[in-house]
Amino acid sequence: MPPSARLLRLTQDPALEGAFIPTRPRPRLGFSLHAPGLLRGGLTHLDGPARVEAALRLLSEHPGQRAAWIEARLSAYPPAFVQRGVDLARLLFVEAKGYFPWAVQELARSQVFGILAVAAPLPDARSLRRLQLAAERAGCAVLLAAPLPGEAWPVRERLWCGWEGGEPRVRDAGGEGRTARAAGEGS
């Protein structure tokens, strides 16, 4: 019997009622385009043609949060950010060039930023894992708005961002089970 099934049987044992402390739902950031919100302290991958629009919508909905936008070579266009309601006084831009994984890691680890938008691809799963640990510790919502490496198991949520009637739309890209779980975790 696999350990998970054994644990499940234990939790259902009436003799052990009250012995298990239910896991607390992970805190989430409210997001108008995705009702369950986005994960704090974890990695969320935004995919699709409107992924940056979705990230900007999130930034504009949380003007009190300090945020950072990091790319290897900058292609972001700040006037467009202002048009979408982002407060530029709260958004730090970092152009990391050859030190991209290191800079992403430092930004997440600093506990200074509530939202970190990573707009360039990370090289491998190891750097994603490091980023995941740093994000968990700092309680930082990390948005990966760039293609993922081949193995990207540390990414907890994947969202598809597309256009509908000229407006960005977000849906869960991880299947029905993932959507239900995300909704159950919502605060």
């Binding site: 730090l92 831009f93 970092v94 990391a96 060039k97 290191w102």
Partner: peptide, 17 residues
């Protein structure tokens, strides 16, 4: 953090718009 980033990446690589 900003000082360390600027030290490694260059002064113009860490900025506000």
């Amino acid at each position: 953090l900003l000082a360390r980033l600027a030290q490694r990446l260059g002064d113009d690589a860490v900025f506000y718009a």
